[in-house]
Each structure stands twice: as C-alpha cells, then as structure tokens.
C-alpha cells in the first residue's frame, strides 16, 4: 500500500488505528478543498447560499480536528509509537492544525462573498481571484496527494509552487492598489476582494506546511524555513 508499511504491525488493531488516522486526515482535507472551491465560486457568482454552506462546513472541519487530535493522543498513550509511526502521529497533529486554519481562511473568503453581496460588486479583481484560487486549489490538492502517497517529490513541488503563488499575490495586490488610487470610491468593494486574495495566499502557506510535514514523515527531515533546492540537496545527501 505504501512505503511506510503502515499495515504491517504485528497488532492488526494498531494497523487499523494508523490507517484510520490517515483516512481521516484525507477526508478532512477533502472537506477543506470543497470549502475553498465553494468559497471562491461564491464570490465569482455572488452566491450567498453557497457562502453560507462554506460557513456551515467549517463546523465539520473543526470537529474533524478535535476527533483526530483525540485519536492521536490515544495512539500516543496506548502504543508509544516509534520511528515512522511516531512521525506519522506527530505529522498528523500538525497537519490538522494547518487544515483547520485553511478552513478558517476559506470561511473568511465566504464572508467576503457575503460582504460583496451587501456592498455591491467590486469593479476589479475577479480575474486575479479566479486565477489565484485555481493555483491555490491545485496546490492544496497536490499537498494532500503527497500525503496520501507519501510522495516527497510532490511535496517539494508544493513548496516550490507556493513561492510562485506569493509572487502572484503580490502582483495582484499592486494592481488593485493602483486601481483604488485611481478610483477611491471603489476602495470598500475592492478591499473585499483583497481580503479574499490574502486568505488564498495564507491557504497556500498552510498547504506548503503540510507538504513540509510529509517530507518529515517520509524522511525524518525537518525542512521548515529551507528553500526547495536546499531540501533536494539534503534528500540527495541522505540517499
């Protein structure tokens, strides 16, 4: 099934417990992906109902976080996991934190959709938003996929692509700021889009965190605050 041999403990129950963690994390990730897609679509199509749905899903995501956390505590207490099992449990406790934050950010985007409905459509920014949302959605997807397959190379790609998203975000900001300076009456409405863009950028950061946790899980290497090429170099050294 995987390179970590999660299913090969003498204790079948232990196999099942770890597999349950993995599945639950992926399910939680799936929910967050839906939230993200729905929230951005809610802005694009001015769909208040969809925005409300995103806010509702957040409660589910929060519950996932609590339940998975509890499961991790149980495994730590009952099994005293070591090596890759320990790394998996540690990684999951961190990854659910990131997913929960991503859920929060998606909810913020949904709130911006509602605000845009109240304040009126923004004259600018929708193209930028759609563009960034597509990139971030892909990033989240690849990060979760990297976890599902324990794929370090996919994880490195996420770390690298997050840099592009940061650049994209900054250039969109510059553009919108220029527009607001030209037309100060639009500031309130454009700001709604800007907040949504900011949330997207934050979601990208959390996806990168998850990718870094995956690298820790598979290779036991802490790669936080290290450039992608440096990560590759260290992996090469380990091999």
């Amino acid at each position: 099934m995987d390179s970590l041999h999660l299913d090969q403990h003498i204790s079948q129950q232990y196999n099942a417990d770890l597999e349950k963690l993995r599945t639950a994390l992926l399910e939680m990730g799936g929910l967050v992906e839906d939230q993200l897609a729905d929230a951005t679509r809610a802005i694009e199509t001015a769909d208040g109902e969809l925005a409300e749905k995103v806010l509702k899903t957040e409660k589910k995501v929060d519950k996932f976080e609590i339940d998975i956390d509890k499961e991790c505590t149980t495994i730590l207490a009952r099994r005293q996991p070591a090596a890759s099992d320990l790394r998996l449990v540690l990684m999951v406790t961190k990854a659910i934190r990131d997913l929960e934050r991503m859920g929060d950010e998606a909810a913020k985007i949904a709130k911006m959709a509602l605000a845009l409905n109240d304040d009126g459509e923004s004259p600018r920014g929708y193209v930028e938003l759609r563009h960034l949302a597509a990139q971030v959605g892909k990033l989240v997807n690849v990060a979760l996929d990297a976890f599902a397959r324990f794929d370090v190379y996919a994880a490195i790609k996420v770390v690298r692509d997050d840099k592009d998203i940061d650049i994209e975000y900054r250039s969109s900001l510059r553009e919108l700021i220029t527009y607001m300076m030209e037309d100060p009456r639009s500031i309130k409405r454009v700001m709604n889009i800007m907040w949504a863009l900011r949330s997207l950028e934050r979601i990208g950061d959390h996806a990168r965190n998850i990718a870094e946790h995956v690298i820790y899980l598979v290779h036991g290497m802490d790669v936080r605050h290290i450039s992608p090429s440096e990560i590759e170099k260290q992996l090469e050294k380990q091999r």
Binding site: N15, K20, A24, E27, K60, I68
Partner: peptide, 10 residues
C-alpha cells in the same frame, strides 16, 4: 467522526 467514517473491517 472518526468512528463514523472508519470502515468496520479495516
């Protein structure tokens, strides 16, 4: 949720 989503015969 974990109990609900976990296949019984994992």
């Amino acid at each position: 949720i974990l109990e609900a989503t976990n296949p019984v015969d994992t």
